[in-house]
Amino acid sequence: MAEQVALSRTQVCGILREELFQGDAFHQSDTHIFIIMGASGDLAKKKIYPTIWWLFRDGLLPENTFIVGYARSRLTVADIRKQSEPFFKATPEEKLKLEDFFARNSYVAGQYDDAASYQRLNSHMNALHLGSQANRLFYLALPPTVYEAVTKNIHESCMSQIGWNRIIVEKPFGRDLQSSDRLSNHISSLFREDQIYRIDHYLGKEMVQNLMVLRFANRIFGPIWNRDNIACVILTFKEPFGTEGRGGYFDEFGIIRDVMQNHLLQMLCLVAMEKPASTNSDDVRDEKVKVLKCISEVQANNVVLGQYVGNPDGEGEATKGYLDDPTVPRGSTTATFAAVVLYVENERWDGVPFILRCGKALNERKAEVRLQFHDVAGDIFHQQCKRNELVIRVQPNEAVYTKMMTKKPGMFFNPEESELDLTYGNRYKNVKLPDAYERLILDVFCGSQMHFVRSDELREAWRIFTPLLHQIELEKPKPIPYIYGSRGPTEADELMKRVGFQYEGTYKWVNP
């Protein structure tokens, strides 16, 4: 592979701008107003304001973009700056750019259920340069409990009458099928589907988006991507930290609602779906819905739930269990780990287990898709061969690698495990991989909904998990304890083995 010439960040961002501006969906010269509902909250200060700053800094926003914060707290732009700027990672050389960014910011205080507050917000936006005809993007960085009041008031008082209007809704989209349907029906009564952007930030990850290209742009994968060759698929999300004093919020939802029903299920769809007619948003989402419709409700015998306990040999936070978090209700049975087996009941995947695993306070930070292939028929190497695996590593250190057998150097035919490896950090030294939120917010500006969740996708996802969630809430089974920093409950490994996964433990990928 030829040595790549190092590029400056300015040059890299210039390439990104060229890609972005050559499309006809990006209205570079139009006025846009980006409204952050819930501007005083954690999500706004840690993710949304920093993301908008990065896009502005790199010249990736339309030229005439204004940012308006809205929340109940009586704040000023200076207050917003004070709480969000520490997350910007701005350099001293960017000081003038930073001043320009905050000059485009404003803030309006108001209630979430008060019509007069929204009329005041609308008047404020109209007073901005060309504000009355601007395109408006409303980001709901809010708890779902206020979605209905907020969307109703936005629709009645704050819509642009000339430009387009788009609304970005953060997960969780309800707690179960019934609450999700209620919320979807409410929002759909106010906005068209092409105006609604239900954001799952995992769909903005580079390697998640790469799944489609790997599958449908490489001839070698087509013939082997089926039940005849693939023994099982494992989708993993692991965090090495616990709730760390923020367990009160987590306890309301648990690990299945927080990660599995959305992030992991979306990745499953991209692995299992048929080739779409095109890369058009609805063509892709149509195929994802077909996959979900082929999955039956989760069966309790295919589920393992766990909850982390303190590690007596650990240090600091590792010595504390979930129930030691003062914000967690006493005696909570909320799971911090889950392993679930699903089956896609169609011709391509009949009988292939899709194993979804996620948890907190585990032994490493990792998100990946792992396809394990069947054993080689007619073994001539005296059971020395391990199964081939194709691994798409989402985070950290984005990579695609194939675990395969090669001859060990020497005189004899002794096979050993090795890999074919594409590590993004080595291959793409001159490429700026956008943060997931950067990519998705740019998608909203461009009107691309491919990486957002459609209402029928959402409904099918909740259909699969709601009976299990209701059973857990009714019966309150005690989750299996696992030690902070471990791989999780051993019962999860036993479940995976029972459905056909072979864990060798003899080879570990190392970032080159």
Rank of each mutant, 00 (worst) to 15 (best):
Gln133Tyr: 09
Tyr118Asp: 02
Ser84Gly: 12
Gly245Trp: 10
Phe241Arg: 06
Arg136Asp: 03
Asp100Arg: 08
Phe253Trp: 04
Ile35Asn: 05
Asp194Phe: 09
Thr51Met: 13
Met37His: 09
Gln28Glu: 03
Arg72Ala: 02
Lys152Asn: 13
Ile52Trp: 04
Ile196Val: 12
Gln119Val: 12
Glu206Asn: 05
Val213Pro: 04
Glu252Phe: 14
Thr91His: 12
Ser123Val: 13
Gln133Trp: 07
Val208Met: 12
Arg74Asn: 12
Gly69Pro: 00
Lys45Thr: 09
Ala39Glu: 00
Lys46Arg: 11
Arg81Ser: 06
Gly23Cys: 12
Gln11Asn: 15
Arg104Pro: 00
Glu93Leu: 06
Glu85Leu: 07
Ser157Asp: 15
Asn229His: 10
Pro50Leu: 07
Thr10Ile: 14
Gln133Met: 11
Ser84Asn: 07
Gln209Gly: 06
Glu85Val: 10
Gly254Ile: 01
Asp100Thr: 12
Phe101Asn: 02
Asn165Trp: 04
Val213Gln: 06
Ala103Tyr: 10
Gly247Phe: 05
Ile36His: 02
Pro62Thr: 07
Ile36Asp: 01
Val12His: 15
Met212Phe: 05
Gly110Trp: 04
Asn64Gly: 05
Asp181Met: 11
Leu75Thr: 14
Ser29Ile: 09
Leu137Glu: 03
Thr51Cys: 09
Val12Tyr: 15
Trp54Ala: 13
Asp79Ala: 14
Arg104Met: 14
Glu19Phe: 12
Thr10Lys: 15
Asp113Arg: 14
Leu142Met: 08
Ser189Gln: 08
Ser188His: 09
Leu20Phe: 13
Phe21Asn: 07
Pro144Gln: 02
Asp113Gln: 14
Arg72Phe: 00
Asp24Ile: 13
Leu235Glu: 00
Ile256Glu: 04
Ile196Gln: 04
Ile80Phe: 07
Ile224His: 01
Asn126Lys: 11
Ile256His: 06
Met207Val: 05
Leu60Phe: 12
Ser180Arg: 01
Glu239Asn: 01
Leu7Glu: 14
Ile67Asn: 00
Arg74Cys: 13
Glu170Val: 02
His155Glu: 13
Gly222Glu: 13
Ala71His: 01
Glu63Lys: 11
Ala78Thr: 14
Thr145His: 09
Phe221Met: 12
Ala116Asp: 13
Leu20Met: 13
Cys232Ala: 13
Phe216Thr: 04
Pro172Trp: 00
Asn226His: 07
Ile35Val: 08
Ala6Leu: 09
Ser189Asp: 10
Gln11Lys: 10
Asn226Ser: 10
Glu193Asp: 02
Tyr49Phe: 08
Arg136Val: 11
Ser29Lys: 10
Gly245Ile: 03
Asn126Glu: 07
Asp251Thr: 08
Tyr197Asp: 02
Pro62Gly: 10
Phe66Tyr: 15
Gly110Arg: 03
Phe173Val: 03
Arg17Met: 15
Lys152Trp: 14
Asn185Met: 10
Arg74Leu: 14
Met37Ser: 06
Arg219Phe: 10
Gly245Asn: 14
Asp114Val: 11
His27Cys: 01
Gly59Ile: 01
Lys46Cys: 04
Tyr202Lys: 00
Phe173Leu: 07
Cys232Tyr: 05
Ile48Ala: 03
Gln28Asp: 08
Ala6Pro: 07
Gly245Val: 05
Ser84Leu: 12
Val68Met: 07
Lys171Thr: 00
Arg246Leu: 03
Ile48Met: 05
Leu55Trp: 05
Asn64Trp: 14
Leu75His: 12
Gln209His: 07
Gln83Thr: 06
Asp30Leu: 09
Trp53Arg: 00
Asp79Ile: 05
Glu148Val: 13
Gln111Asp: 15
Arg81Ala: 12
Tyr49Arg: 01
Tyr147Glu: 01
Asn185Gly: 11
Val146Asn: 11
Ser132Arg: 11
Val68Asp: 02
Ile36Gln: 00
Arg81Tyr: 06
Ile67Cys: 10
Asn185Val: 12
Val108Trp: 04
Ile15Ser: 05
Ile80Arg: 03
Thr236Leu: 04
Tyr139Gln: 06
Lys95Val: 01
Phe34Cys: 13
Ile168Arg: 01
Ala103Asn: 14
Leu75Gln: 07
Ile220Phe: 10
Asp251Tyr: 00
Ala231Gly: 12
Leu98Tyr: 07
Ile52Glu: 00
Met37Thr: 07
Ile234Lys: 09
Gly23Trp: 06
Gly41Ser: 03
Ile187Met: 15
Arg198Phe: 04
Leu214Ser: 05
Asn122Gly: 10
Pro62Val: 11
Ser8Phe: 04
Arg74Met: 14
Ser179His: 04
Asp100His: 08
Ser117Asp: 11
Gly59Lys: 12
Phe102Thr: 04
Tyr49Met: 14
Phe101Arg: 01
Arg246Pro: 00
Lys46Gln: 06
His186Phe: 08
Leu98Asn: 05
Asn185Arg: 15
Ala103Arg: 09
Asn218Gly: 04
Asn226Pro: 01
Asn122Leu: 15
Val233Gln: 02
Asn229Lys: 05
Trp54Leu: 09
Tyr112Thr: 05
Val150Asn: 09
Lys238Gly: 05
Lys171Met: 00
Gly14Cys: 09
Ala90Gly: 11
Asn153Phe: 12
Phe221Glu: 01
Ala78Asn: 10
Leu7Gly: 14
Arg57Met: 02
Glu63Asp: 07
Leu20Pro: 13
Ala134Glu: 10
Phe216Cys: 01
Arg219Trp: 05
Ala127Pro: 09
Leu128His: 15
Met125Gln: 13
Arg104Ile: 13
Phe101Trp: 06
Phe253Ile: 10
Ile167Gly: 01
Gln83Trp: 04
Glu94His: 08
Ile255Val: 14
Ser184Val: 13
Arg227His: 15
Lys238Phe: 02
Gly174Glu: 10
Arg227Asn: 11
Ala115Glu: 12
Ile255Leu: 10
Arg175Ile: 13
Leu214His: 09
Lys97Glu: 13
Lys46Ile: 05
Lys205Val: 03
Ile154Arg: 00
Ser180Phe: 06
Glu63Arg: 09
Gln28Tyr: 07
Asn218Leu: 01
Lys171Ser: 02
Asn126Thr: 11
Gly254Phe: 01
Asn210Pro: 02
Asn165Glu: 09
Pro223His: 12
Trp225Ala: 00
Ser106Gln: 14
Arg9Glu: 15
Ser123Phe: 11
Arg9Leu: 07
Gln28Val: 15
Asn210Val: 04
Arg227Ala: 07
Leu16Glu: 10
Gly247Val: 10
Arg166Ile: 02
Val68Cys: 06
Gly59Ser: 08
Gly242Thr: 11
Glu93Ala: 13
Leu61Ser: 01
Gly222Arg: 05
Met159Phe: 11
Pro172Arg: 00
Gly38Asn: 02
Thr65Met: 09
Ile154His: 00
Ala217Val: 06
Trp164Arg: 10
Gly248Pro: 04
Ser188Lys: 06
Lys46Ser: 04
His124Asp: 11
Trp225Ile: 09
Lys47Arg: 11
Leu183Lys: 00
Phe101Glu: 00
Thr31His: 06
Ile33Tyr: 14
Ala90Trp: 05
Gly204Asn: 00
Asn105Thr: 10
His155Asn: 15
Arg120Met: 08
Arg219Cys: 04
Asp42Lys: 03
Leu214Arg: 00
Phe87Met: 14
Gly248Thr: 12
Asn126Trp: 07
Arg57His: 15
Gln22Thr: 06
Ile220His: 01
Gly163Ile: 00
Tyr197Lys: 02
Met37Phe: 11
Ser106Ile: 14
Lys171Phe: 01
Arg246Thr: 01
Ser157Thr: 04
Val233Asn: 00
Val169Gln: 03
Ala149His: 14
Ser160Val: 05
Gly245Thr: 07
Asp79Met: 07
Thr65Cys: 13
Ile234Met: 08
Val169Cys: 06
Asn64Arg: 15
Tyr147Asn: 06
Gln161Ile: 13
Ser157Trp: 06
Leu140Arg: 01
Ser73Gly: 12
Tyr249Cys: 00
Gly248Ser: 04
Arg175Val: 08
Glu94Gly: 04
Val12Asp: 14
Gly254Met: 03
Met125Asp: 00
Tyr107Pro: 01
Glu93Tyr: 05
Phe191Cys: 05
Met212Arg: 00
Tyr112Leu: 04
Pro143Ile: 11
Lys171Tyr: 00
Met37Ala: 09
Ile80Pro: 01
Thr10Glu: 14
Leu61Phe: 15
Glu99Leu: 13
Arg72Cys: 02
Thr91Phe: 08
Lys95Thr: 11
Val169Tyr: 01
Leu130Ala: 10
Tyr202Trp: 03
Ser29Val: 07
Pro143Val: 09
Glu93His: 14
Leu98Trp: 07
Ala116Lys: 14
Asp79Cys: 06
Ile196Ala: 04
Ile67Phe: 09
Glu206Tyr: 06
Ala141Val: 03
Asp100Ile: 07
Ile48Gln: 01
Arg104Ser: 11
Ala116Glu: 06
Gln28Met: 04
Thr51Asp: 04
Phe241Trp: 11
Ala149Tyr: 15
Gly110His: 04
Ile52Ser: 04
Phe191Arg: 02
Glu94Val: 05
Asn165Asp: 14
Leu140Pro: 06
Val169Lys: 00
Arg182Asn: 15
